[in-house]
Amino acid sequence: MLSLQRITKTFGGVTALEDISFNVESGAITGVIGPNGAGKTTLFNIATGLYSQDTGDVYLGGQNISRLPPERLARLGMIRTFQNVELFGQMTVLENVMVGLHTKSKSGIFSCAFKLPGQIREEKTIHRRALKWLEYTGITDLAGMTAGSLPFGKGRLLEIARALASEPRIILMDEPAAGLNSRETMGLAGLIKKIRTSGITIVLVEHDMELVMDVCDTVVVLNLGHKLAEGTPRDIQENPEVIAAYLGDG
């Protein structure tokens, strides 16, 4: 589904990623782990077109997407969430999810301003579908709240709901469990499995090892911009290099 090939990225003098390659299997959950500063977020930023890599290529379903901007990738069915939760803070929860449906609708400025019949119909569909995704993620009761005033855990769920609303083929989640309590994390694990069951490919950056081991089919380990290992969760857990990297990190 998603294939990264020989990605290298430097910031000034710092090499954030060096010669990283791996494939994400369609329909699977791929975990990306590694200590802080390993380059995981940078990898996501490159895959989703926010940063451009120095060298290397990214393929989505066989198409080279290396130079495409994020808004194009959303249309191609790749969507992500952010480590530092990027909600539309002044909009309501429902409106946030409605923005998620942006790629699923097409009315322009003109038809919106003049409320042409097609736009009214489309608006109804957007509303209905957005409600469906709130229900799917279990935050329907928050629909009218301002997103900026949500508790952290709910914000994470809203980000996932908003991402799902665009009906992606693949979703990249950057530390979705960070800041959640154990009950919320369990709920998240359930949600992630449910999303996979619906046929969406998932890439998961996560520090919570229990969660990673529970849901992932494959795990890629990064350390200081290098790929340290790749394999099943069980292989990774027993890999001495990985253990060393984590212990070394403290």
Partner: peptide, 20 residues
């Protein structure tokens, strides 16, 4: 409308709007 929401989304988080 869809456009109004997209505009307000830009106001709040440009990156998130692009990614959506």
């Amino acid at each position: 409308s869809r456009i109004g929401r997209a505009l307000r989304a830009i106001h709040d988080s440009e990156v998130a709007a692009r990614v959506m």
